[in-house]
Write a protein that binds this DNA or RNA. Structure first.
Lengths: 107, 107
DNA sequence: AAGTCATATAACCATTTGGTTATACCAGAA
DNA sequence: TTCTGGTATAACCAAATGGTTATATGACTT
């Protein structure tokens, strides 16, 4: 799975991504940097792992997290296409006019 | 309020934004273009209004919706700064290193 | 072997989300 | 005035979200 929209919907997760963009961090190092509990933070990490935007590795008794930069970049570029397209919609007007699409069809 | 992250988290809402980027639409015209019920769609519209990304106006017995392009643009630019920053984090590494920040502090 | 610290997991909770159906309301048309 | 189509709202539901506390597990340290 990779739903970047879900991943970035929460401010704590955005902060995690920002931190991991600069460094690898241990779970406890991350917990230190937030005010929420360890299990709460762990849940956010699990979501980011599930969405394949960060990776987790074992190192002794530690869990080290790192940003999956390549996938993050890919997914973010897709987001930019979709959301950016809302703004510069000039060319798209004709396209839409020609299609009588329903729901989230991709064509 | 304006939480663009919340607004774009749902695919139906993204589709609504895309549609409204090209045209104004009546609620019923929008409903036609989806497979969900009128009250379900109305809830999505309410969220987009709440987040100030679209506007609603009465026109006889119709409700016409339009994109609030300016605010959308502003909010999207903020998103790009925050999320884009995760990718080009070179300059930010020093900044972060100097600050021992906690949670989502803004400084 | 016992202690300690990092992590994992379970159980719980309140709120939000995304949908439904049924029904009320309201404005223009017949 | 009644009919009709567009919109609003209420009541309900299941699942997801974001948090908690308590406790278990696991791996170095002493």
């Amino acid at each position: 799975m990779t739903d970047i929209y879900r991943a970035i919907a929460d401010p704590t997760r955005r902060k995690i991504l920002t931190l991991l963009s600069r460094n690898e961090y241990t779970q406890s190092e991350l917990v230190e940097r937030f005010t929420i509990s360890q299990p709460a933070l762990k849940k956010h990490l699990a979501i980011l792992v599930e969405e394949d935007l960060i990776a987790e590795r074992k190192e002794g008794r530690y869990r080290v997290y790192r940003l999956k930069r390549d996938n993050f970049k890919d997914q973010y570029e897709k987001l930019q296409q979709e959301i950016g397209g809302v703004l510069d919609s000039k060319l798209l007007k004709l396209k839409t006019y020609l299609e009588g699409e329903i729901d989230g069809e991709s064509h």
